[in-house]
Amino acid sequence: MKELAFLAFVACLLMIVPTQITLAETTSIDVKEELQSLGLRSTTEIMSAIETGFLQGRLAPDEVVSLLSNLAAYNGEREDKETILITIARALKDDSLPVTMLIGKVEEGLARKVSLQAIKQMVSERASLLAEVRDLLYTNLIFTSSEYGQENCLVLPLPRFDFLVTQIADTLANYQESGRSPLEGYLVYQEMHTRLSMLERNAIIPAEDVELVLERIKPESLTRILSNVLSQQLQ
């Protein structure tokens, strides 16, 4: 009886292990295959950025495969799909920005069945916001990531820095998308205050990060960021 149970256990192991190995192998291959199936001109540039994202731990193969396959299956111009992917790739590789929010917005737009034009515009605006917020944290000597350590800055581990940048940029983007005026710096600041406080209350973000941001970033800086992004979009 014991032998039978042992044999059954071994049989189960033999069935499970190869499945896991296969899954781990096919994921990275699928990224390339999915990208090639889109038939884009900038495949090499995009793939290179994706690989950088994998190395930095900013991207997971599963989320990239999901994004590419959803884009491939979506009705729309190939050029628009390419622009969306290039915006994400350049934000990741050239500007060294976190792109989780951008990927999430593309997925949401596809699920909502909105036009690729609308998705393209949103991704572009949010990429600009991410860069502006990252620069704001650098120039105000608040935080920097462990990758780009600066003097007199609090050096944060990359995931913690990315999360902070993403949350602030997302708050500004939501404010902008709600149609309110970027000139009301105090209201923008209030939105950021509420978001960071909620994250702190739920222990998702450390209190010291929130305190520093709320103390050193002024409403005027947020107005300037939103105005910059708006003027970039108008050009």
């Binding site: 917005k105 949401e108 737009g109 909502r112 909105v114 609308a118 949103m122 913690r160 939501n174 998308e177 709600s178 149609g179 509420t194 909620m198 994250l199 209350r201 739920n202 222990a203 998702i204 973000i205 450390p206 209190a207």
Partner: peptide, 23 residues
């Protein structure tokens, strides 16, 4: 917990907190 505008519609937002240890 809150609502945000997105792609011309609304999204609901919920926060899930940590039990004890902070990050």
């Amino acid at each position: 917990d809150e609502y945000v505008r997105s792609f011309g519609g609304y999204n609901s937002v919920r926060y899930v907190g940590y039990a004890g240890d902070k990050i």
